[in-house]
């Protein structure tokens, strides 16, 4: 038990990001206003992005831009000195995807507003049921 607890607290970054993801997920499910749901979706996606980026951390390493040395033949490049670039690359893609989804979701929310003049989901459902 103590061992498991210590293991969880050591990796506290994952714990924090999972909590953030759950905050976003709760907003999507439980909130009534459409814009708040969209914000919750964005929080959820951002938390996943932070989760991935924290995978690439290395103790005592620097950013993955190799120093410009003129005769690189003399200085060997050790992978241990640089953090893992792959999660950063993957998350560039994920950030772009989340922005694109946000844009389309907001455009659809504007369309909903044009039709129903409100953005609260219960009022919209009431309007649909009794036209």
């Amino acid at each position: 038990m103590e061992d498991i607890l210590r293991q969880i607290i050591e990796k506290d970054n994952y714990w924090i990001y999972i909590t953030l993801m759950m905050v976003g997920l709760y907003a999507i499910i439980a909130k009534n206003n459409l814009v708040k749901k969209i914000v919750g979706m964005n929080i959820f996606q951002t938390a996943v992005i932070l989760f991935y980026v924290s995978i690439g951390v290395k103790k005592g390493a620097t950013i993955p831009i190799i120093e410009h040395v003129h005769d690189t033949a003399h200085t060997a490049i050790h992978a241990v000195d640089y953090i893992n670039p792959l999660p950063h690359v993957l998350m560039l893609t994920a950030i772009v995807v989340s922005v694109a989804t946000l844009g389309v979701a907001l455009a659809i929310a504007i369309t909903v507003y044009r039709r129903y003049q409100t953005l609260e989901e219960d009022e919209i459902l009431k309007q649909i049921r009794e036209p």
Binding site: I4, H78, A79, Y82
Partner: peptide
Amino acid sequence: TIDFPPLGDPASPASTHVSPRYIE
């Protein structure tokens, strides 16, 4: 997360499998 490799470990699978070739 109990079974994850420790944070910042340079010997974790994520840091030793594919990425070293990219960096080097």
